[in-house]
Design a binder for these strands. Structure first.
Lengths: 149, 149
DNA sequence: CAAAATCCTACCACTTGGGTAGGATTAAGT
DNA sequence: ACTTAATCCTACCCAAGTGGTAGGATTTTG
């Protein structure tokens, strides 16, 4: 599995915030209730998003979180990368471009590198706005019969 | 991580067999030595490939394994799918098309479904032969500066 | 000053990953 | 027939990661 619940719930939180933004701060308990997820677990996840600069937060009563930018200015890759640490499909693709010592002669490395690029390319191209507007043509490109491809 | 060592080593074994095929059977100890991998571990992996019909095997002295088909007739998706069980990037994409109970209203599902298709599409398009011939243009499509894209 | 919210540090059960160990069985060559 | 070399099979095991829970400290508003 490449994306764990951590990344998936992080995206769910971001989408929830995008859908329910009215300028004010949204409390985590509201989000947890709407999405039917454990608030305690979400706490640890939203903390990553917050520290990573994805959100603005306000402590105290009537506090909560809101998006730091507009939905169209978040791409999915950065959200998942922040929470998952890496999205590499295999261990031999390092996050910082470091390669294993057999890289020069490894005949399968180009495959993994290509796969990594394909994944990153797909996720980087989709924004939070695409998700909340349900841009199925973009997300299911080439695979959705009911969309005009 | 989507592809563990199990799937990676399985592919390594298949590539090794494809490179070293001369009609005869190749012993696992030869493969393990060439690839510098634990023979005991490879044993459990090659067993999956064998039972899945990817290989032909011969027991006893001078026995070993060889490819059941030609390298061009294996795609990478089927090799990894067999050994990994699933290549789905998230748990909410089930292997047999079964969906989670929130699927109808889930706004992130199209993203995951699209990602799954992109991965499957990439891996299904590449064959064992592409790997042994080093078809970088196909594997690194659009991302390789030294290839003419 | 009470209520409601974020923040912070532990802890923990369960599953998966990445193997190892040991032996049973089978086939070839002498 | 017997040795050797190979596949086959079952069981075990440790470390790391996943998916949380618990409890409290701190901050802000009304």
């Amino acid at each position: 599995m490449m994306v764990s619940t951590k990344g998936r719930y992080a995206l769910t939180v971001m989408v929830d915030l995008a859908k329910n933004e009215d300028g004010g701060y949204v409390s985590l308990s509201d989000i947890a209730e709407r999405e039917n997820l454990s608030m305690k677990y979400l706490e640890s996840i939203i903390s990553i998003l917050n520290k990573g600069g994805m959100l603005l937060s306000l402590r105290g009563k009537n506090g909560g979180y809101k998006l730091a930018r507009e939905p169209k200015d978040y791409n999915i890759n950065e959200i998942l990368l922040l929470t998952e640490g890496t999205l590499a499909p295999v261990n031999c693709i390092m996050q910082d471009g470091v390669q294993c010592d057999k890289a020069a002669t490894c005949s399968t490395l180009p495959l993994w590198a290509g796969l990594d690029k394909v994944i990153e390319g797909y996720l980087s191209d989709i924004t939070l706005e695409d998700i909340i507007t349900g841009n199925r043509r973009k997300m299911l490109k080439g695979y959705c019969e009911s969309c005009d491809n």
